[in-house]
Design a protein around this nucleic acid. Structure first.
Lengths: 346, 346
DNA sequence: TACACTGTATGCAACGTTGCAAGAGAGTAG
DNA sequence: CTACTCTCTTGCAACGTTGCATACAGTGTA
């Protein structure tokens, strides 16, 4: 069965191509009788508009690109899900590209513009592209930055208040009586803005509590996978002053890795060492102990990003805006301990 | 900077549109001198081909669709990653659609054909579409079925040997001296073919060992999330004959849920109850105890699927084939226990 | 000198759709 | 009966690209 075109439907219904187009798109006024005839023909032939042609004509593709480092990192998977839902609600399709942190791919997707009109806008969670590089972008295609970057005003930008969130996480640990709180995941270089914000929050918490920061408890990691957390925790356990009594990890994967190291070496969590993460991935809830974490409102992040992007498609000379999504602290067993006899499963 | 077209480049280089096209595509023989001039013009104008137009003309979009139930289910996220990589290696882009198990969306993506030529082929991990429904599909667009379905020969189909894998998992538990092995995740209805295959393997293992199957230990679940596993495990713990001494879960999420229930109720894993899952999601490796599982070769699954699909794009009247991917058993702490004093983290 | 060739370059039409502006009827008012 | 309006319908051109067929030099050969 060869795909039928507008022309075939027109022939069958005995009307002009244009009229069929009008019916299909609900554009111009069409007489009831004609409409029914056309609709019948559409149904009989199983006509489906060729979106390629439509988009070419309209100059829009109806496709948004979501560019993330790795799709199998739960945070990005959960975010992707939310973005897809938001986009769908507005009639857009989403293509997802993974950059694997390769600057080349990230640049290709974002800088080279539009992949030839294949998508109308880009939502980017940057990993390797620096602000400086981004600034050179010739913005044929609207771009919304996701995740957290120090704003330079050049782009639309959706983020949570990382400084505050990190401060709250640290203060949560303080409030439980922890004295030596390690920070795991600092990235003291150009593309590590998010991590730096969290470190700032960590420092602020110390300052507010009148405690000095032990610089040797701030551990840098270029990547945030479980294995990195496990490894970093092993290092921390060899600290000359002994293990810290709490660890604030800059994402949940690091925290789960750290958890694994602690438990497998016989440490009790949280009794010996309390652990808190960041991102609130679903998995953390099912570990034992369940993982305390900072929970960014992913749904809201996706909503703000897609909304902003779609708005920009219609109205490109609006000035870039800074959008803030909510977050909250989820205190679970890895900091609070096991209540009562035993916790019921969630 | 308005996007430049073939025509603009042609004007600038002082040649015909057609020649520019030839240069860009490397088609016809072009004189060295001309080529250089055109390439210079392309560079100066920052020309990028409009893929929409190209695809319209060529009748191909260069896009494959991957349709999965939920992107934030780690198995699908990991699979999606592999598919994207395989597709990229062959010059294709992937759009991902989540169906959320809604039959409507699944049908729309798969049945209604091509979303108007927006993609050339579909890789589907079916959830709610039955074989019967699929059979009615008018196959304008090639379809490869992913995940495991009882084959009816109508479609290309990539799977692992679920019966064997399930049997091996069960026998693994037997070999550790477990007597009462529960099976968690049966789906005794039309769209639950995969689960049924696993149940068959579970039964075969019993048969081969000369043990009767206790039907009350086969627990059905319509969904395979962590919460389902946790809940099902709670039920199992109330079994009139007492808890089983091992549980074979039909995916890792169920297993992690079960693990959570067991640990939070004070059971020791594997000492009291051994747990094995299915899928080998990364997360299982970092739980404590780490999760034993059946590991399908996701990379191979993705490769076979994309290869097959791409091949079909060129040569549509090849007969449907059944492709088998490898799997292996990953025995970890949730069945084997903690070796030595304490395991090092992975 | 005429002919066939080779190597380059081009014009036209088409892919399937929609924007635009105008056309065709029918109805109403003068 | 004419002029006008209103409702519905349509033809033409274009979106940016590529397939096809052809044109055009220039070169070598008969």
């Amino acid at each position: 069965m060869p795909t039928s075109r507008l022309r075939d439907v027109a022939e069958r219904a005995g009307v002009s191509i244009r009229t069929v187009s009008n019916v299909v798109n609900g554009y111009a006024p069409v007489a009831e009788k004609t409409r029914l005839r056309v609709e019948a023909a559409v149904a009989e032939l199983g006509y489906r508009p060729n979106l390629l042609a439509r988009n070419l004509k309209r100059g829009r593709s109806g496709v948004l690109a979501l560019v993330v480092p790795e799709l199998d990192v739960p945070y990005f998977a959960e975010l992707a899900r939310a973005v897809i839902m938001q986009a769908r609600a507005r009639g857009y399709t989403v293509v997802i590209d993974q950059t694997d942190g390769e600057p080349g791919r990230e640049r290709e997707m974002v800088m080279e513009g539009s992949r030839g009109a294949l998508f109308d806008g880009v939502i980017l969670s940057p990993l390797s592209l620096s602000q400086a590089e981004l600034a050179e972008r010739d913005s044929r295609v609207p771009l919304v930055l996701l995740g957290e970057r120090i704003a330079d005003g050049g782009f639309d930008h959706v983020a949570i208040d990382n400084v505050l969130a990190a401060r709250q996480a640290t203060e949560h640990l303080f409030s439980l009586g922890r004295r030596r709180v390690a920070a795991l995941g600092d990235q003291p270089y150009e593309t590590g803005e998010t991590a730096q914000l969290r470190t700032r929050g960590y420092r602020l918490a110390h300052e507010a509590a009148g405690r000095p920061v032990d610089e040797s408890l701030i551990v840098a990691r270029p990547r945030f996978h479980r294995s990195d957390g496990a490894e970093a925790m092993r290092d921390l356990l060899r600290h000359p002053d002994g293990p810290p009594d709490a660890v604030f990890c800059y994402n949940d994967l690091l925290a789960l890795g750290a958890l694994r190291t602690l438990l497998s070496q016989g440490f009790r969590v949280p009794d010996d060492v309390a652990v808190i993460g960041f991102d609130d991935i679903e998995d953390g809830r099912y570990h034992t102990p369940s993982l305390s974490t900072v929970a960014p409102d992913k749904h809201q992040i996706a909503q703000l990003a897609v909304e902003r992007l779609v708005a920009r498609l219609d109205d490109s000379d609006d000035s870039p805006s800074e959008l803030w999504a909510a977050h909250r602290l989820e205190a679970r067993e890895s900091t609070m301990g096991f209540t009562a006899a035993r916790n019921p499963a969630p």
